[in-house]
Design a protein around this nucleic acid. Structure first.
Lengths: 344, 344
DNA sequence: CTGAAAGCGCTTACAG
DNA sequence: CTGAAAGCGCTTACAG
């Protein structure tokens, strides 16, 4: 019974309910619907109720693309991390997503492979999408890239480290304090020739090295020959290789502090293979308390880092910033914990 | 020298160059620019050149939101995986991103925690964003969710398993064949009382179990008491616990096939702790060849699964689908490899 | 507290 | 092979 002439143009709409549909159903204007939905300003409570009913009735869901185009801001949060193969960052991400997803934000994950150039490229690409927010790892970037972030106007939270700087938001802990504390723990348990073995050599690893040096310095035991710094990627195999190398080149070393648990785990396995008794002949310590460290033989002493809490707090801080709220504590230090197990 | 009156409205533009700017600079219409940029139809080569020059000159980059709104299709690819804490899926993701990013696609990562309901919620959420493509893990979803995917019209590639079904695209390998092959390897090396120990109990684990049963059946050695199926999440600690339990409850077991390497690694560590000699008293085998398996004592025999290749091929297949091209082989079996090391 | 108009920056669907 | 018009579904900026 449609007496009207067939339309000349095929409609381009997706068939989903639109803001206009909701407005019509609720008997208000589209702008009022828009405002009611975003909780902006005080729309009359009665209208809000009518709008919400219409939304339910029609199963209306806002179109993210239209929203992004009109407001110059998407519902995406870009998260830049160095690596996905380090459980540390997986835990961080998991916590971030768990907070952001229920709030309606989609997470874009960028892996930088510890390469500032790669990070810059990702950042430029993501910024084109006008993300609602940004989470980046650490502070190791060029002045140009910092300007790029600041100039974009996109709220940004830095994770893993903290820094006191105006307009900079960060959630993390002091990597150097953690390095110092573990070294001190080894000193306190009577070790003297404590080696520091590190891979990757990213900024946070080097901060831990500083902490190690401070503790050794204070004890009057500094010896640069005790530092093994390998730029290769961290792995169990590399940990084993470093262990053998240190045993060979410095037989008097009585403790090794590895900058990541995978290295330390590899070292413990190498010790088993070589028949080196840990901790009797040699203490071994790691960093991060990764999966499996408590299962090793002996269980690995390590530094437990609060990456899940960092992720959750960073998400919370970012959401406040995205809502335009003031953040009372722009710099959040979540600390760390020395976990003493059998290996030290 | 602007004699014109001050504009009454503040401009809402972002300041970036737009399609219209490029069109004006190139002396063509906006549609021609749009077509030239997307490589659609044959635009006169000379015009394409002029457009490209204007693009370079102005530093033009298309606005993803506008594009998505006008075309009902974003530049996002949603990838749904069960877990981020299993290195298997991290490798898969890494490979997917490595292929998709240079092609201009952004990856949205959804973690389902092996929960179909959670997967459905994520899927509905992502589909609202009208992704350009979809990558999902396996085939374990309700008919309703399958309809949801099919009805969305979004190209979709399934990974980790393969299936022959019209309109279904998949890249993976036969989990049951892999389970069978490893069991056969243990049989071939003289083992008879071979236990199958599994956690998580996701669909692919159960397929491996089928393969195990087939091999045991063929050898006339089936015994349901040899199956230890634990719904808990896979971990080193659980592997150790399962190892102890199996030793206690079935002392005559002469080999244990764990459905994931982390379990097997935990078992090897437990064996060291308990003084059980592997492989003399007992063979141990794993699945996936994860990091560290080659470092264990003894090194772990396992099934190497081609997850990086799966990710790369799935991305390639998806890109073909997104371009509207025909895919000659909608079902790609990438196989697996038995890696024999010291533990068997 | 509410709304009419304009606009965000693209692509679609027709037409020639 | 090229283009003028319309439209995608929202929000912004004014105005009242």
């Amino acid at each position: 019974m449609t007496g009207s002439p067939a339309p000349t143009r095929r409609p381009r709409s997706s068939g989903r309910a639109t803001l206009a549909d909701v407005a019509q159903a609720a008997g208000v204007s589209p702008i009022t619907v828009s405002r009611a939905l975003r909780g902006e300003r005080a729309v009359a409570p009665e209208l809000v109720e009518r709008v919400q009913q219409a939304v339910r009735l029609l199963g209306y869901v806002p179109d993210p693309a239209a929203r992004a185009l009109a407001s110059s801001r998407s519902s995406h949060v870009a998260v830049l991390i160095p690596l996905l193969s380090n459980a540390l960052f997986v835990d961080l991400l998991d916590a971030v997503q768990r907070s952001l997803l229920p709030a309606g934000y989609q997470t874009l994950i960028g892996v930088t492979h510890y390469d500032p150039a790669e990070e810059e490229a990702l950042l430029r690409s993501y910024l084109l999408h006008r993300p609602a927010g940004l989470i980046v790892t650490g502070f190791d970037r060029t002045e140009a890239v910092k300007q790029l972030i600041a100039g974009s106007g996109v709220p940004c939270v830095h994770v893993m480290e903290t820094v006191a700087a105006p307009g900079i938001y960060s959630v993390g802990f002091s990597q150097s304090d953690a390095g110092q504390a573990m070294t001190q723990h080894l000193l306190d348990s009577g070790r003297r020739r404590i080696a520091f073995a590190a891979a990757q050599l990213d900024p946070r690893t080097l901060q831990r090295l500083q902490g190690y040096r401070q503790a050794m310095q204070a004890a009057g035991l500094v010896d640069s020959k005790l530092e093994w710094l390998d730029p290769q990627r961290s792995s169990l195999a590399l940990g084993g290789a470093l262990f053998e190398q240190i045993r060979r080149e410095a037989p008097d070393v009585d403790a090794i502090f590895f900058n990541n648990d995978d290295l330390a785990q590899g070292a413990l396995l190498a010790a088993l293979r070589l028949g080196v008794k840990v901790p009797d002949q040699l203490a071994v310590a790691g960093f991060n308390d990764l999966t499996g460290s408590d299962q090793m033989l002996p269980p690995l002493s390590t530094v437990r880092t609060p990456r899940s809490a960092i992720g959750a707090e960073a998400a919370r801080m970012l959401m406040a910033l995205m809502r335009g709220e003031a953040v009372e504590r722009p710099q959040l230090d979540l600390g760390f914990e020395i976990v003493r197990r059998g290996s030290s």
